[in-house]
Design a protein around this nucleic acid. Structure first.
Lengths: 242, 242
DNA sequence: TACTGGCGTATGGTATGCCATGTGCCAAGT
DNA sequence: ACTTGGCACATGGCATACCATACGCCAGTA
């Protein structure tokens, strides 16, 4: 099975000198997948102050606007429904779900649990080179550099946390946190400018890297957990949602 | 909105003396939902030694056997695909996914991370009565009673862990672990009879309850984590999958 | 004015048929 | 005997039409 594919790949390798660049040809994405991506990014980027009317979707209207039939669109919506981004109610409508503050707090809690476990695993599974790579995410913002580059810091911040999660080498932890990514990034972006949180964040990160490189499993886990739970407490106290 | 529904409920309450028992009438489940449930339980209960031919599903055949059209069946299959229970390949077929040992280990790891976080939360969120309720899951098996009731123990074991997770009062942790439930239960059932694990499990559980009731957050978290990671190590070493 | 009942419309659910493409069979050629 | 080309069939993707029900409008009644 798959012989023809193998031949094709072999041919490509052996012809590495030519300009021939075989590629997937078709964009490869099904209408369902494209509709899913479009809807997901639209929902994610939606203004949080949208009116109730904007929180409602219509299958026929959307299928017409995407230029596809209802069938693949419905499959995309069903997937978003399962992920909790929308809620489909029979014969009533499809509603974009507003995240409650409690749900945001739960997401941060789960993130704390999983990233701290990943940190624990990283002290055992990650190589010295991999751990050293973590410095790249924080060194650029050390000391005085932070103030000048605050704009970049928020993204570098979340990437640092994702990098730790990756070094845990647990695919399921990566998968679950990826699902929470958009929400957690949004809340980190929103809070990073408050109360000197960025500077304190950097200090925490350096301590975390030190613990990881010292292979201090318990300390690495604890520092990561406390770091993220502090974010949780901050959101709980000072951020106004709903 | 929903006025008629409210009237109905009020009527039911005020007529609480009569034999009239209004109920949902229709089973309420869509064909998609019913197909989903049927397929999920069928896959979960499938013999792990199924032949390759049995690992393949056919939309038309299944829709005929369920007595429904392909559309709701496809939606059910798409959901199972997203959950990772099956893999749908365009114009190739639908294949039941065999879990690799690495995936099982990842699930146990995530369970450990989330249950230990739940235990941490439970020391702060759960009432004394709620924590006392945990005894019900283990007292029946204390001491000599265990040997006589091994058959029941496996289920009581997993229910104990779910109870702790519930007391963390974090809906998302409950939701994620529910998704892992079937797999983790299966592996616990498979290993509980080995190497006196049941008896040691009981001891662990009693210590965990003690730590929770003492509101010792760090200890409760650690005991739960270590308890589940021991299961992970046991599976890693002694259980033969794939 | 307030309530009721029925009917039309909107909307998600379901059934069905066609389409594009991957696979395997089989015959023809070497 | 082995390769090759093409055809038939299998199979998931997609389009379309119809169905059942929730909601709202509106006339009719007291």
């Amino acid at each position: 099975m798959f012989h023809s594919t193998c031949f094709l790949e072999d041919a490509c390798l052996s012809m590495s000198g030519t300009a021939l660049k075989i590629e997937p040809i078709a964009e490869g994405l099904s209408l369902k997948a494209r509709a899913y991506d479009a809807l997901k990014s639209a929902i994610m980027n939606m203004n949080i102050y949208a009116s109730d009317a904007e929180l409602r979707l219509d299958e026929r209207d959307l299928s017409a606007r995407f230029g596809i039939s209802r069938t693949p669109l419905r499959e995309a919506l069903a997937q978003l429904d399962q992920e909790g981004l929308v809620r489909i109610v029979a014969r009533r409508g499809i509603f974009i779900v507003r995240r409650t503050k409690a749900e945001i707090l739960d997401m941060i809690t789960v993130w704390a649990a999983l990233e701290s476990m990943a940190a624990r695993l990283a002290t055992k599974e990650a190589s010295a080179e991999e751990l050293a790579g973590l410095h790249a995410h924080i060194d650029a913002f050390a000391g005085d550099a932070l103030a000048a580059r605050m704009g970049e810091y928020s993204d570098a911040n979340i990437r640092f946390h994702q990098a730790i999660i990756g070094l845990g080498k647990c695919a399921l932890i990566v998968q679950i946190t990826d699902g929470l990514f958009h929400h957690v990034r949004a809340i980190r972006q929103r809070t990073i400018f408050e109360q000197d949180r960025a500077r304190r964040s950097i200090v925490d990160h350096m301590e975390i890297v030190a613990a990881l490189e010292a292979r201090d499993t318990e300390r690495a886990e604890r520092l990561v957990r406390e770091h993220t739970l502090r974010l949780r407490d901050h959101v709980d106290r000072y951020v106004d949602l709903d």
